[in-house]
Simulated assay, not measured.
Amino acid sequence: KIGAWASPQSTVIPNRKYLERLMADFEEEFKGKTVKRPPNWGGYTLVPTLFEFWQGRPNRLHDRIQYTLINNQWKIERLAP
């Protein structure tokens, strides 16, 4: 988690030492404290209700397995390729 605070993600930095210095600074700042997510982090909560797993085969008889969430239970079905 401290690495997330230390990394100015996707910005140009002068060298590795600069990054290591930031890491050391944040390690000191959070010493003995709970490390929370940086304020610039966002995110989404995904609640999946359907997944499909597909595995290709040379003969085109691919394996397709579908998982559907119904009443908190996963229904598993094979789909035709």
Rank of each mutant, 00 (worst) to 15 (best):
R16E: 15
P8N: 05
Y18M: 10
L22G: 09
E77Q: 11
F30T: 10
E77D: 15
N72E: 14
R21G: 10
P8R: 13
E20Y: 04
N71W: 03
G3A: 07
P8V: 09
R21S: 14
L79R: 01
R64V: 01
N59Q: 03
T49V: 03
F26A: 05
F26R: 12
T49S: 05
F30H: 07
R78F: 02
K36V: 08
E29D: 06
L22D: 06
L22M: 15
P39L: 05
N15T: 07
Q55E: 06
K31V: 11
R64K: 04
P38D: 05
F53K: 02
L22S: 14
T34I: 14
K33F: 04
L50E: 13
L61Y: 07
N72M: 08
G3E: 05
I65E: 11
G3R: 06
L50Y: 06
D63I: 04
L22E: 13
P39W: 06
R57M: 04
T34S: 13
P14A: 14
S7Y: 03
N59I: 00
R78A: 07
G43M: 02
E20G: 01
W54E: 00
Y18L: 13
R57E: 08
P48D: 09
W74Q: 00
R64T: 00
R78M: 03
N59A: 04
N59S: 06
G56K: 01
S10T: 10
Y18A: 15
G56N: 05
N72Y: 05
W74P: 01
P81N: 15
K31E: 15
A4Y: 01
Y44A: 12
K36G: 09
A6T: 01
R78D: 01
W5P: 01
F53T: 07
P14F: 12
M23F: 09
R78G: 00
I70Q: 14
L69C: 10
I70D: 10
E29A: 13
W5D: 02
E77F: 02
Q66W: 03
W74M: 01
N71G: 08
Y18F: 15
P14S: 14
I2N: 06
P58R: 06
F30R: 11
V12D: 12
F51A: 01
S10P: 04
N71A: 12
D63A: 05
E77V: 11
L50T: 11
F30C: 11
N40V: 08
G32C: 10
D63H: 02
L19P: 00
Q73Y: 06
T11D: 12
K75V: 13
W41A: 12
E20L: 12
W54A: 00
